[in-house]
Design a protein around this nucleic acid. Structure first.
Lengths: 191, 191
DNA sequence: TTCATTTCTTAACTTAAGTGAACGAGGTGT
DNA sequence: ACACCTCGTTCACTTAAGTTAAGAAATGAA
């Protein structure tokens, strides 16, 4: 399981065995059950996550209704905005499936970064890459209809449609579950 | 005008006079006329922008129709995704108003970063902050209606409504100009 | 200023999403 | 087996956005 993490890191920087051991000694691997809530609205947190296996989601509760805004699956990294801004969280994070994650707090990051400066370089590369990716996603969302967004999802992340409940997918697409249901019926009709 | 840039930088790191001079010697300040196109679809580019004064926008052309996805105004930084991914640009960048920008290419960044490592630290902080901010914006967009998005815009960036044409605002809000017109009429009605 | 072009608004009509309600399938726990 | 609950689908109805077209207002250039 560690190898998944090191393979990921190796796309950005190369690590010596010493550095790998330093990371392993931090004891950051966590196994979490489906349904576990990792972060609640209003909580403060310094934890960042990296998904080795499984799926976690972020959602807001508005008028006692869940609004799912993102899914993080294998090899996805998540640093909640509240960690960056040092304010209480606006949203929840919960496990969609039984998952294996790494959980690292910002204190650990500072420590590792001061020992191994190239770690800082990786963080910079990673966040620049994620910023660009997220920009592309946001733009695609803005410029397309719910139906196009769904088609795009089938193309880009077909696994999500299988592993995630419809009502969570619906708000991820910016619509209500009933609309997603109709939209799906419309599409199968066309074919 | 330089002071605006240095004030911005001072929020992240402190610069010596030597460092400031190194930046100034790069000759990165540019004055651009309204309507100037800074980047075209299909072009490759290594340029990042920082807006000192004025406003620039990014837009896609889909079915010969402009789809504006973002506005960058005073103290906003923009590194186009194509610079990060090293692929041809998917979108255009153009000047909404006569503007003063800094334009820096990734080569210059590498050079400055190797001389002054703390510059790297700033880039990391900045992109992490922007990633978090953009995540918040994206989530707010997904979880709200066009009308709520417009109200949110009045609240958060009232200047945009004054300085940007309606048809550009419309696609920024994910709707057609006619819908924005109706939506506005609906709101003034209510009051 | 005048003319031409672009931008914004209005209107009528079409299409799709929101809403409220009902139903059935599948799962859970007792 | 039973009741219970969640989830997905369907329906009828409402509301708002997309579309097409026309005209008014603003802008910019000659």
């Amino acid at each position: 399981m560690q190898d998944l993490l090191f393979d990921f890191i190796s796309k950005y920087i190369s690590l010596t065995d010493e550095e790998k051991n330093a990371i392993l000694s931090l004891d950051i691997f966590r196994s979490v059950k489906k349904g576990t809530i990792l972060l609640k609205e209003g909580q403060k947190s310094k934890d960042s996550y990296f998904v080795l296996k499984g799926c976690i989601r972020t959602y807001y509760v508005v008028d006692s209704e869940e609004k799912t805004t993102a899914f993080y699956t294998e090899m996805d990294a998540l640093t909640p905005p509240c960690v960056v801004t040092q304010t209480p969280s606006e949203y929840y994070i919960s496990c969609v499936e039984d998952s294996i994650l790494t959980v690292s707090n910002s204190g650990m990051e500072v420590e590792v970064n001061s020992k191994f400066p190239k770690f800082d370089t990786m963080c910079k590369m990673l966040s620049e890459e994620l910023l660009a990716k997220q920009r592309i996603d946001f733009d695609a969302f803005k410029t397309s209809t719910p139906e196009q967004r769904y088609m795009n999802l089938i193309e880009k992340r077909p696994d999500l449609i299988q592993r995630v409940p419809q009502y969570q997918l619906a708000s991820y697409l910016g619509i209500k579950p009933e609309s997603l249901s109709r939209l799906r019926a419309r599409i199968t009709q066309k074919k």
